[in-house]
Design a protein around this nucleic acid. Structure first.
Lengths: 258, 258
DNA sequence: CGCATCGTTGACGAGTCTCAACTCCAGTGG
DNA sequence: CCACTGGAGTTGAGACTCGTCAACGATGCG
């Protein structure tokens, strides 16, 4: 069952003790960002909240009618699709505070599938209502544009981090991306769980799963990180960042990585 | 000189015989798409048009204040930036009818540079005015969302076409992407010019320029294409499409590539 | 407890990068 | 008109990274 159905369920069974946008600690990266209290009040009635879903359950599937933009409240979501030759392709992993579904506006149906990698919860924003509200609240419209712009930038970054980088650089970039994103939501930047499998990391980075495994082991030997199955501890973040650029540890970049 | 300055110039020197949106043959992929005649009339006064720029001239540069979204009227634009280690990274090539600048909304300044690869012309849409107009014209707001959504999808596609593909597949995907995009604007799908250098193709695809050259030569040997310097003729489009998927020529894909 | 899945590690080979030489072409100036 | 020059493109040879295949260990689930 995908969440579309769960959403229907929720309508009849009203949400119990689920935080409102106004008191949500993730509102700094989600739609309410930049809105004043008044405008958040207007946004509130749009939001659909419902029970968490478990690992393996889908938020939506390729071909489902596009209705909602989803904000991750907790957990991790893998967004993927199957290529023409039935290989899984991974578009991205979405962490708490991140928003998914923007890539399906044009088609009018979801162009990919979204599945929970662990128990996860969401807020759903019906897109047609969001569009209407955008016309009344300039700050909301701007925020939607900003979020979509951010998605383009992120996708561009990913694209470029696949170009001309070797396995070690790719894995370092991936770890630092996760670290930054967790930190941004108030989690630890140094210590987190890889909620996805080595295979999934490999697909995402364009590497064989064995290469991912080897690279992580190698980084551990070099005292950059400690890996134990799903858990990762970053010991030397600056060194890891230098790995990304391909610069030696003694070279100081003049242009900061943004 | 970047186009920002050219824009100022244009204000004093009014456009001569430059087509309006209502009569523009590219309006099917640009902002006017889906708007009725009335709404296009309202959009018209926003648009800034000016003289073509030459190869090597910039439309904007990294760090410039973000003001306009640009639509390519003719020519080719390379969008790029420098990485932390001063390597050129190419975000994309933009052809007539395509729209650039969406990735800079969030920062408020251009996060990349855009340079003409041949003599090229543009329409500029001041973004703040566009936002305002979006509140009055629902169809325009929806179109901006659609264009941005499309940009996300395209970037996702690029990302995935770098994953787990070998050089031959990457180059085939690149050629077919160009072919489709030219065809969509009424140009030939079979015959076109590669306005970018082998080096630039290589950077974009994450390959060495020698590999690009070798791959093109190899495709010519296989009678898939003819390459002569910048000119490309595609002889066997279906075969080229099969190269993309990695499927043999005798395997019929059940899911059409969209 | 058995089984399936996930992750690790090793050996080998294919594919691509690097380095280098060479050709071709456009533009420049004599 | 031609020689010169620099850039772009092609092609070859060797080195190296990474993918593939395989075996094995660890973990989690029924």
């Amino acid at each position: 069952m995908s969440i579309g159905c769960a959403l229907e369920l929720q309508k009849s069974a009203p949400a119990r003790d689920i935080a409102l946008c106004s008191s949500c600690r993730l509102s700094g990266t989600c739609f309410p960002q930049g809105l004043d209290t008044d405008d958040v009040q207007k946004l509130e009635p749009l939001v659909r909240r419902f029970r968490p879903i478990h690992r393996g359950e889908h938020v939506f599937r390729t071909g489902d009618k596009f209705q909602n933009i989803y904000a991750v409240r907790s957990g991790t979501v893998k967004v993927y699709r199957l290529s023409a030759d039935f290989e899984e392709q991974i578009i991205g992993f979405y962490l708490p505070g991140e928003v998914l579904g923007f890539n399906s506006i044009e088609q009018g149906e979801y162009v990919c599938s979204a599945v929970a990698l662990e128990t996860s919860s969401f807020c759903a924003f019906p897109f047609s209502l969001l569009e209407e509200l955008c016309r009344c609240i300039p700050a909301l419209q701007h925020q939607v544009f900003r979020l979509m712009s951010k998605e383009i930038v992120f996708s561009n970054e990913m694209m470029m981090s696949h170009c001309g980088k070797d396995a070690r650089q790719k894995v370092a970039i991936f770890l630092i991306s996760l670290s930054n994103r967790y930190q941004h939501q108030g989690y630890s930047a140094r210590e987190f769980r890889l909620t996805m499998s080595r295979r999934e990391v490999g697909i995402y980075l364009g590497l064989a799963l064995e290469t991912v495994s080897r690279t992580l082991s190698r980084m551990q030997e070099d005292n950059l990180i400690t890996v134990d199955r799903k858990s990762v501890i970053i010991h030397d973040l600056p060194a890891l960042q230098q790995v990304c650029t391909g610069l030696g540890p003694d070279v100081i970049p003049l242009i900061p990585v943004n």
